[in-house]
């Protein structure tokens, strides 16, 4: 588990775990929102989902509010903060899209609240899909599905290279923004 705070808020002893070993008081969750740090994981796209689950359960057992029902209010509040932070961090790491976006941009959601920025070439391509779909219903779904697979493959490849020490994450955000759009398209045009 990550070391995130040096001194117990209650007894002032040094601490490394969620709870102070000396007095047992639960410490505040780390101020950093980095989900990888919270779970003590390296910054990698390729993670072991089962290992993440084990880490989640271990920390949740030590920090869940149910474990602090009869403890002082300050610790109950910290238990709430801990588990909320833990749940959010797990949500980000569990999903390939949010995990990738976090590594590439340090955020789990797109920058623009009104939807991600897309380049005109991509929008022109989508426009073409829509036109073809009018002549041949169902084509857009096929094209979108293929595009989604291609985007996931690109993301996967670029992360593999990056983790191997070569390449950059410069294009990841762009891939993800396109993916968001394509998946939205698939949702709004369910299979006939």
């Amino acid at each position: 588990m990550a070391s995130h705070r040096s001194v117990c808020f209650s007894c002032r002893e040094p601490v490394q775990a969620p709870s102070c070993v000396g007095c047992g008081a639960l410490q505040p969750p780390p101020a950093s929102p980095d989900p990888f740090v919270l779970f003590g994981l390296p910054h990698r796209y390729h993670i072991d989902a089962a290992d993440l689950d084990v880490r989640y359960r271990t920390i949740a057992r030590a920090t869940h509010p149910d474990r602090f029902v009869s403890r002082p209010a300050v610790e109950r509040r910290m238990a709430l903060q801990w588990t909320a932070a833990l749940n959010e961090a797990r949500r980000v790491l569990k999903d390939d899209r949010t995990r990738a976006r976090w590594l590439a941009t340090g955020r789990s959601a797109p920058r623009e609240s009104g939807g991600p920025a897309l380049d005109p070439a991509f929008l022109a391509e989508i426009f073409e899909w829509r036109e073809r779909d009018e002549d041949e219903p169902g084509v857009m779904r096929e094209l979108a599905t293929a595009s989604r697979q291609k985007l996931f493959r690109k993301i996967e490849t670029e992360f593999s290279e990056w983790e191997g020490g070569s390449g950059t994450l410069d294009h990841i955000e762009d891939h993800l923004n396109r993916l968001t759009y394509v998946e939205g398209l698939l949702r709004s045009h369910p299979e006939a």
Partner: peptide, 8 residues
């Protein structure tokens, strides 16, 4: 279906 407690 977000696991609670949750913070946003």
């Amino acid at each position: 279906c977000s696991t609670i407690p949750v913070n946003a």
